[in-house]
Design a protein around this nucleic acid. Sequence first.
DNA 1: CGGTTGCTCAACCATATGGTTTATAATTGC
DNA 2: GCAATTATAAACCATATGGTTGAGCAACCG
Lengths: 114, 114
Amino acid sequence: MVEQPQSALDGVFHALADPTRRAMVHQLASGERTVSELAEPYAMSLAAASKHVKVLEGAGLIHREIEGRVHRCSLEREPLVRALSWLRTYTDFWDARLDALDDLLNAENDDDRH
Amino acid sequence: MVEQPQSALDGVFHALADPTRRAMVHQLASGERTVSELAEPYAMSLAAASKHVKVLEGAGLIHREIEGRVHRCSLEREPLVRALSWLRTYTDFWDARLDALDDLLNAENDDDRH
DNA sequence: CGGTTGCTCAACCATATGGTTTATAATTGC
DNA sequence: GCAATTATAAACCATATGGTTGAGCAACCG
């Protein structure tokens, strides 16, 4: 499988597209959790929750530390930052466009540089 | 319960999970595009591209203006901001944890809250 | 008018996804 | 050793997704 820089975002956004997985991220934000702990809030089998954890892990969003029979999961910041950066590119661009419009509307000078 | 409208994020993250759709967002960042223009760079049928546009529209990421037979699409900022905010919650939280750790390492007091 | 363009819709197909249940492996505890 | 706990794997199912082709429709053009 050829991993292109964009395909990393595929996994991250896809992982975050599921409300259960986002809720798991939320849980992990307050500290490490075992798979059982992550699964506990949801009306689904442990196996199903385990799959969600696997998707999050595959996207790099969590790190798994195996301690005996317990799998302890923790949040990884980097993929979140990468997704954030991607989004910011476009929200910032929009801001820039709005700013430019604002500049035009409030124009004191017509300094037109890019 | 930080987030009730989680289903809105479902659509946004799902839409952004596809590289074609992210590329379309990229195209739209530099201005309005017709469906044909959005479809042109990709090795897929217009119908397929049209579906992608529909997904983006369904997620609220683009607005469609019909001018005669031409559908002119423009980027909507708000869903991007919403996704960004969601992500920032967790990257910021991480920062906070690192800050807290930093505080611990430099500890002068054992303030023990989270 | 008739042809072409821009786009969507419908039907279809292969694969992915999210869930289930049952089975299995490894660890822990009595 | 045996039983319970923690978690994954495997098989299965329904639905969603992303693509195709072909039809159809409205709008522009000559």
